[in-house]
């Protein structure tokens, strides 16, 4: 049966260097439930090492969690990538790590904390997660689709690290599944104001780096279940699944 699902598909955990220490898998799940979200995705910069703990905690507390990663292309464009299973996200992570130069400097960029679902710190990730990969947009989209995931162009309304900001307009050969706008603009307004995005399904997400920002905006999906396959149908408006914002 079709029903409404409130989704925030772009949340950073404490593993992203720019994210708050309090963004642990456990606290993210708690806050998401408080915000009456039905579905969330963990999308740290160029890594998925906090996804598994969030999936376990989400299952325990009763919220759907999708594995994800926000990948930075060599053009310095951010892409939200979402997967059905943790295994696919970890394969993506392997691909990204193989093309991600540099080491983190915690004093400059922030700490990159891998945590479990009991708020225990497991380790710090030493890679330069805030950096750009050497992968082109086309490479990333191809790999994500090969892993049966979806690719959403992050915060296209923003001047920095967005497809439109970096490359001026959306390249016609890029096989994106959707575009995302930030809390700063409504989907309706974005579709009329940002050139070239009206041909793409448009979602909105919090891009939260702090607990209080989780669920600041959300996308309302009409689905039968909170899964990636259902979201894929909704993005193209098939069999009654759709975006209801």
């Amino acid at each position: 049966m079709l029903k409404k699902f409130r989704a925030d598909l772009h949340i950073h955990s404490c593993l992203s260097p720019c994210s708050d220490w309090d963004m642990s898998p456990k606290k993210i799940v708690e806050r998401s439930l408080e915000q009456r979200l039905d579905l969330i995705a963990i999308c740290d910069h160029n890594t998925a090492e906090n996804v598994a703990a969030t999936l376990r905690e989400g299952a325990r507390q009763g919220i759907a969690v999708l594995p994800g990663m926000e990948v930075c292309s060599k053009e310095e464009v951010h892409l939200v990538t979402l997967f059905k299973k943790i295994e696919a996200a970890l394969k993506m992570q392997e691909y990204v790590y193989a093309h991600l130069p540099g080491e983190n400097q915690p004093d400059v960029f922030g700490h990159q904390v891998v945590a479990d679902e009991h708020d225990q710190v497991l380790c710090e990730n030493p890679r330069l997660l805030i950096g750009a990969t050497r992968l082109s947009l086309v490479d990333i989209v191809k790999k994500v689709h090969h892993l049966d995931g979806i690719c959403i162009s992050s915060h296209v309304d923003r001047p920095s690290f967005s497809l439109v900001g970096q490359l001026g307009f959306i390249p016609e050969d890029l096989n994106l599944d959707a575009v995302e706008v930030s809390y700063r603009v409504s989907i309706d307004k974005a579709l009329t104001e940002i050139a070239g995005i009206k041909d793409y399904p448009c979602v909105t997400a919090s891009d939260a780096h702090f607990l209080e920002d989780i669920g600041k905006v959300w996308t309302e999906f009409i689905l039968t279940a909170p899964t990636l396959d259902e979201i894929r149908l909704a993005l193209t408006g098939i069999k009654g699944r759709r975006i209801a914002n």
Binding site: E75, L137, L167, F169, P171
Partner: peptide, 8 residues
């Protein structure tokens, strides 16, 4: 930048 959009 080396992306094709530079030509456009």
């Amino acid at each position: 930048q080396g992306h094709q959009n530079i030509v456009a």
